[in-house]
Design a protein around this nucleic acid. Structure first.
Lengths: 251, 251
DNA sequence: CGCACTATTGAGTATAGTCAACCGGTGTGG
DNA sequence: CCACACCGGTTGACTATACTCAATAGTGCG
């Protein structure tokens, strides 16, 4: 029986038996995740520091605001949202994370988790003990540089969202969101034109600074224009160019 | 005569003579910048890789969108804005940078500058060749960890702004902006209650997703409520608690 | 089967944007 | 040295966009 890392009574986190150890060398996300550009022997070293995999059920927290920071998490399967919970109970979503993306980078600066990570569906992550990762970065320049690129990409992405939030109207925000998701799914090898939203209208609204009603109305409008087809969370993009079009007219 | 690093005909960048080489060991920002927590001999090593200092006049660009990425820049004196210029000429501001803060972190991921950095006043930066910095990070664990903290802090800060932009009304946005600036000036050893805005109303508006008129009206309102006193760009915070108060009521 | 959750749609409203006039300071050229 | 233009800022009137409140319906789970 494996130990339940970080498990707290209220968090139904399911540990994966140690025998099914994480292994970058046999992972299909190799080319999207940390190991990008490493030699087999280097990937071997990376494998050795990844302590375990960890499953998180839909709706459960991988970590919570205030938890001490020790690990980064690479999403292996599923999807997460990170949420900022204020005292009064209202929650704001700061990000969505899909396979191959790294969770917890913001916590390095504070030594504690600043947000809570909640699984949007049954998910699994690889646990990366950060201290040991830093050691490895010192040994493997290619890994070091790639890690810096990953952090940098996070900064870029956040600044991109800032531009969207600060400069675009509701329809352009939603359009940018759909295009971004589409690209990320395409990167993962899924269809860019047809995918399943992992989140509710309310969660999209929270992320984009809109109300759920506005998101719903916009989906209806996009649908009416013939730009998308949408049925609950299944979405098909019919006119990519039109979607691109509305984000161009930023003022 | 020193060479003009990165200088392009249209960019009036002024190089500082090599004799006045950058030196962390004698810099007053030591405790805020890269050298935090390093031993004298380690700071010595850092000094050696900093190729030069570089002055940038008010309104001039330190770098521009599309420039190849080679260096990070630590602001030594003055202030910068980073701007995203769209084809039609409109510009959106993605960040403000004060002394001790690092410019260019977003470019690591793309190998090119994603934004342009423009000096808000006559300014000076230390030039940090990134390749050599990465080498040094491999040698000095304390520097490595601190660098990761700096990148992480950038991510945190961006996500904080996302929360502001996505979740707050105009008055709360401006209040959060003032409080943030106040803290940053306090960190630098300046007064937290009284400082000079380095940017125009339009630039603040661009950053916060508001129009310059709204920013102006809000300054007038805050002033009328007795929360601040403001004269052109000189601002004095009279009631910090009241300012904090309006950002609490986030829905 | 019923309840809770998610989503859609409508009606009225508030917040911030747009357009415009005006003011004061600064710098430039006749 | 003064006139003028320009820039940054303030304020007003009107308007549009997205929010709030509310009613209704479809889905899925216990």
């Amino acid at each position: 029986m494996t130990s339940y890392r970080n498990a707290q009574p209220t968090i139904p986190v399911v540990a994966v038996p140690a025998s099914i150890k994480a292994a970058c060398s046999s992972c299909s996300l190799q080319e999207l995740c940390l190991p990008v550009g490493l030699s087999p022997s280097e990937i071997e070293k990376l494998d050795r520091i990844i302590s375990s995999r960890q499953a998180t059920r839909r709706g459960a927290s991988l970590y919570r605001t205030g938890d001490p920071f020790r690990n980064l998490y690479a999403v292996r399967a599923g999807a997460f949202k990170t949420v900022d919970l204020s005292e009064d109970g209202s929650e704001k979503i700061t990000g969505f994370y899909l396979s191959g993306e790294i969770l917890g980078l913001d916590a390095i600066s504070t030594d504690r988790q600043n947000f809570s990570a909640v699984a949007l569906e049954d998910s699994e992550v690889c646990v990366l003990p950060f201290e040991r990762l830093e050691e490895l970065l010192r040994e493997i320049p290619a890994l070091q540089h790639h890690f810096h690129k990953i952090m940098s990409r996070d900064i870029m992405r956040d600044q991109g969202l800032m531009l969207v939030l600060a400069g675009m109207k509701a329809d352009a925000r939603l359009s940018a969101f759909l295009i971004g998701l589409s690209q990320r799914f395409a990167n993962l090898g899924y269809s860019a034109m047809r995918f399943r939203l992992r989140m509710t209208r309310e969660e999209i609204g929270s992320y984009l600074g809109l109300t759920l009603e506005t998101v719903s109305r916009l989906f209806s409008r996009f649908s009416g224009e013939g730009w998308i087809r949408i049925d609950r969370r299944e979405i098909e993009i019919l006119d990519f160019t039109a979607l691109r079009g509305i984000i161009e007219v930023r003022e």
